[in-house]
Simulated scan of single mutants.
Amino acid sequence: MGIRMTTPMSEVNAVIEAEAERVDKIVIQALSNLGDMCVTEARDRAQEDSWFNQTGNLRSSVGYVVVAHGTIVERSGFETVLNGSEGSMVGKKLAEELAKKYSSDYALIVVAGMHYAEYVEAKESKSVLASAELLAHAEFYDIMEKLKSQTVK
């Protein structure tokens, strides 16, 4: 006994494509939300927990991009703090350069674009991205579980 499919393949493909687009949007939104959390963690802390803004460039260089299938699909604003327009520019450029390394799948890239960010963390013992990275690791598995429940029906 055989089973015969009477639904045209075009309809089957349309359903599959619609579901893939729905899942794609959910993943991108989840990564974007995590990126926002990381940027907030890095940029918006009390002065005693953070570094001193001299020019605003370091804080302005903190931001993220979400890459899906080789394309940047979401990004933070790299908002300028004080006179830190150079930092905004450098942060965006670094994030875009790193995004080129991800031609398939998804990626969340969080950056502090100024070259002295590592120095501030090492010499001044102030977290620039370290606490944001810890937050991302802590939240990632919960986010993945939520994604599973939203995508598997």
Rank of each mutant, 00 (worst) to 15 (best):
T71W: 01
A99K: 10
R22C: 01
M114V: 13
E41K: 14
L134Y: 02
D49H: 12
V12D: 07
T7P: 05
D142K: 02
S149H: 02
G2E: 11
Y102P: 01
K101M: 08
V15E: 14
A46K: 14
G2F: 04
A107F: 00
S149I: 00
R4M: 07
S125M: 07
A107L: 02
E97A: 12
E21C: 03
Y119K: 15
I3H: 15
K153N: 12
A136V: 00
E145L: 06
E97C: 05
E124P: 03
F140P: 05
S10T: 06
R43W: 01
Y141I: 09
S103L: 08
G63Q: 08
L98N: 12
K148N: 11
D105E: 15
M37K: 15
R43S: 11
E74G: 03
H137P: 04
S10V: 04
E97Q: 14
D44H: 12
K92I: 02
M114I: 12
A18F: 10
D36W: 02
M5F: 07
L94V: 03
N33L: 01
Y141R: 11
R45A: 04
A20E: 15
K153I: 07
G2V: 07
V128D: 04
K126W: 07
H115F: 11
N53D: 11
L134Q: 15
V67P: 08
K25M: 10
V66E: 06
L147G: 03
E41D: 14
G56P: 06
I3V: 08
L94M: 15
V152C: 03
A42C: 01
H115Y: 06
V67R: 07
N33Q: 11
Y64M: 05
A112H: 10
Q150H: 08
A14P: 06
S131Q: 08
S104A: 13
L147F: 03
G87P: 10
G84H: 10
V65G: 02
A18L: 15
V90E: 13
K123V: 05
N13W: 05
D49I: 05
V111I: 09
A20I: 13
S149F: 00
E121R: 07
E124L: 13
V90Y: 14
R75H: 11
M5L: 09
K148L: 06
S60C: 07
A138N: 15
N33K: 06
S76C: 03
V128P: 12
Q54P: 03
M37N: 14
S149P: 02
M5P: 09
E118K: 12
L108P: 03
S60W: 01
E21W: 02
Y116P: 10
E21R: 09
V152E: 09
Y116N: 13
L58E: 02
A138L: 13
W51F: 12
T55F: 06
L108C: 05
T71P: 01
S76M: 01
V39A: 13
Y141D: 13
E139C: 05
V128L: 10
D49Y: 09
